[in-house]
């Protein structure tokens, strides 16, 4: 139904997180930006976590082998359908013989392409999401290559045409402010380091993977002897190894780790982690856990009006 001709830097099939297997060391995976995935799925009549394409830095092209209904969200520069500009955040009805091209992106990092009824993918440990390190889910657990043929689960044609309301379209910039809570080992930071963590600007490191992103800035010195016992970590955890450069963990986050957990990105802003690109400016805004949950409820309410009508 869709044949990949250029996968770009890394394109994978991603859907729901692989919940409930962390005690076997199996990470969540799933869309790095779960909100953009949900928005794409909404436009093609799917539920929020159906399997879609996650494209990294754009530069993706595919031939359409059969009529299908798709939508593109997340980081966008230009979308071309057989050479003609097409809108993001809009249901697109493609015909057999069309080709779709997603240009390289300059803001944000990941683009989502959903098809009506979702893409077929292998299920492993309760999810179809691709986890590359262990080759789980997706298409043979690997990133997509030119020539890969993707099929939809059911009929890929949907007759409705929707647009994400303007007020619900995330805007990506090269400067992000992320709400964050203190975590289990924040107290290992002295007053000056703690102030730095929650008030100064960091830059995203060069290796922005689905596992984690380094926060480059003034280095921190948690009062730790490097002998901490390995403890649970999650997407959103900010660890600080002895090098003093904190690392924020993303959707493919390891399940346990032994570096001090100095902060945790609030649930309401975790979807933004998937859009951090190397060099982006990042500031953490400290919230109490209860305030952060209120922020989540507020954001959820706003989004659900569109996502779950």
């Amino acid at each position: 139904m869709l044949v990949v001709t250029k996968p770009g830097l890394q394109a994978t099939l991603q859907g729901a997180p692989r919940l409930g297997y962390r005690h076997f060391g199996i990470p969540y995976s799933g869309a790095a930006d779960a909100l953009s995935l949900a928005l794409a799925n909404r436009l093609v009549g799917n539920s929020a976590t159906m399997t879609a394409l996650e494209i990294t830095f754009g530069g993706f092209e595919a031939d359409i082998a059969a009529d299908c209904t798709v939508a593109v969200t997340g980081a966008i520069d230009r979308i071309l359908i057989s050479g003609q500009s097409a809108p993001a955040h809009t249901t697109l009805h493609l015909k057999a013989g069309d080709c779709i091209a997603i240009s390289p992106v300059i803001r944000g990092c990941r683009t989502y392409l959903a098809v009506s009824t979702g893409f077929q993918a292998e299920e492993a440990f309760g999810s179809t999401s691709t986890y590359l390190p262990a080759q789980l889910g997706g298409l043979n657990g690997r990133a997509l290559k030119a020539g890969d043929r993707l099929k939809s689960v059911g009929s890929p044609v949907w007759t409705e045409t929707l647009e994400t309301p303007k007020s619900h379209r995330p805007v990506f910039s090269n400067a992000l402010a992320l709400r964050a809570c203190a975590s289990a080992e924040t107290d290992l930071l002295d007053e000056a380091d703690r102030k730095c963590l929650f008030e100064e600007t960091f830059f995203a490191g060069r290796q922005a993977t689905r596992m984690g992103v380094a926060l480059i800035g003034r280095t921190l010195s948690p009062n730790s002897d490097g002998q901490m016992k390995s403890a649970p970590v999650f997407p959103g955890t900010i660890q600080c190894p002895p090098s003093g450069t904190p690392v924020v963990l993303l959707c493919d986050a390891q399940t346990t780790g032994g570096y001090p957990r100095i902060a945790h990105i609030a649930r309401c802003d975790q979807h933004l982690l998937g859009q951090i690109r190397p060099g982006d400016q990042i500031r953490l805004l400290e919230r109490s856990p209860d305030d952060a949950l209120r922020d989540y409820a507020e954001k959820r309410k706003l989004l659900d009006a569109w996502l779950m009508p």
Binding site: L19, G20, H23, K229, S230, A231, P232, F234, L293, Y296
Partner: peptide, 18 residues
């Protein structure tokens, strides 16, 4: 909980905000 994960000397319980 959404997830219960043991460390070597602790247990974390991740829950849905509601």
């Amino acid at each position: 909980a959404e997830d219960v994960v043991a460390g070597l000397d602790r247990v974390a319980i991740r829950f849905h905000p509601s």
